[in-house]
């Protein structure tokens, strides 16, 4: 089973974030300022040995790949940001391509959402707007990524580079764009493209042109799980805060029917935990009941389902390093390497 972990590259300083959020802003900024909201709320999360790495540092990228490989992670899926010819947070991947290091499989997920002050992909307080253009821009976009697609480390299915799109329904001429890219891929020595649409926490349309879908957890279950049994409100001082029951959420995931629509392959998903209170405070949501032992138990069952029900070679984990969303496998001071050990044990079961 090939486990691919989503990887957020926002762990280095960029000029845009300096302007929008303050000098030196990275994901570590919010990670550090998190506070516990209720007894037992595990915040702030502190990287093991205070390793607040900088992704522009090649040793940090090497360490990530080495740690991931040691515990059975097959590859990373880096979030890719493209806004009408402008990229953000692209430098770590560019350096990986230039240097040839680390030797670790990867693919890209186009996180095609407008950036706002609310971090919700909506259209209020816009920082940079997501637009899609037409063929000319699609071509520019494709050629910007061609080196990555041609890289021997890039994850391919049947010779076709795996490319995820987060919000395909937002693309006005999505099918045309996918066909266009497929044509360009073939013209440039590739077997075509393997497009994967993300099933997440937003309305999902039936779109042609995709080869597979990926269940992005826990959001897919939040929005499409058919139950709100996992939501609770608890008091945090004089306010109320929304919490998620870890077990209820996972039970919905592992008991879901594997059939969706039109027989399109689905890559099942897994989530480590969820807690975006570092970013949103008590307006965010946190999880009750998460632990590495439970994660191992649930992941092992999801791996089994991936093999036997989904007939999938891949399973996507949210995430390798989403510290500000409580979805990370990287070691921290509280659990050490337990979540990574859980991955390894789940694979071995």
């Amino acid at each position: 089973m090939k486990l691919i972990a989503f990887h957020l590259p926002q762990f280095h300083q960029i000029a845009e974030n300096d302007v929008w959020w303050g000098e030196g802003f990275t994901e570590w900024t919010n990670t550090k300022k998190a506070v516990p909201l209720y007894p037992g709320h595990l915040q702030p999360r502190i990287p093991l040995e205070n390793y607040y790495y900088n992704l522009m540092d090649s040793s940090a990228r090497q360490w990530q790949a080495m740690a991931a490989k040691s515990y059975g992670i097959y590859g990373f899926c880096y979030y890719h940001y493209w806004f009408h010819g402008k990229q953000l947070l692209e430098q770590p991947v560019k350096q990986i391509l230039r240097s040839g290091e680390p030797d670790f499989p990867f693919c890209l997920s186009w996180a095609n959402e407008t950036w706002t002050r609310k971090w919700d992909g909506g259209d209020r307080h816009i920082l940079i707007e997501q637009t899609y253009g037409e063929e000319e821009e699609w071509s520019q976009h494709f050629y910007e990524l061609l080196d990555a697609f041609r890289d021997p480390r890039y994850i391919k299915l049947n010779g076709r580079p795996l490319f995820l799109i987060y919000r395909p329904s937002n693309i006005p001429r999505c099918q045309d764009m996918l066909s266009f890219w497929n044509k360009l891929a073939c013209e440039n020595g590739l077997e075509g493209m393997y497009f994967v649409q993300t099933l997440g926490g937003f309305p999902i349309s039936n779109l042609d042109g995709f080869d597979a879908s990926v269940e992005f957890e826990p959001h897919y279950t939040f929005a499409h799980g058919g139950s709100d049994a996992f939501w609770r409100r608890i008091k945090t001082g004089d306010k109320e805060h929304l919490v998620i029951d870890y077990d209820n959420t996972w039970e919905l995931i592992i008991n879901r029917s594997h059939r969706r629509d039109r027989g399109q392959p689905i890559f099942p998903g897994a989530f480590v935990s969820w807690d975006n209170t570092p970013r949103l405070g008590d307006r965010g949501q946190s999880t009750i009941g998460a632990s590495p032992q439970k994660f191992e138990w649930y992941l092992s069952r999801q791996i089994k389902r991936a093999k036997t029900l989904y007939n999938s070679e891949y399973l996507f984990i949210n995430a390798w390093n989403e510290w500000v969303e409580g979805a990370f496998l990287e070691p921290d001071q509280h659990y050490g390497f337990q979540y990574l050990e859980a991955v390894k044990n789940a694979l071995n079961e």
């Binding site: 209720y38 049994a229 609770r232 008091k235 029951d245 209820n248 009750i288 009941g289």
Partner: peptide, 11 residues
């Protein structure tokens, strides 16, 4: 099922 955490009485 709910976890018996503080203020679960609200549920």
């Amino acid at each position: 099922t709910i976890k018996a955490r503080p203020s679960f009485g609200m549920s």
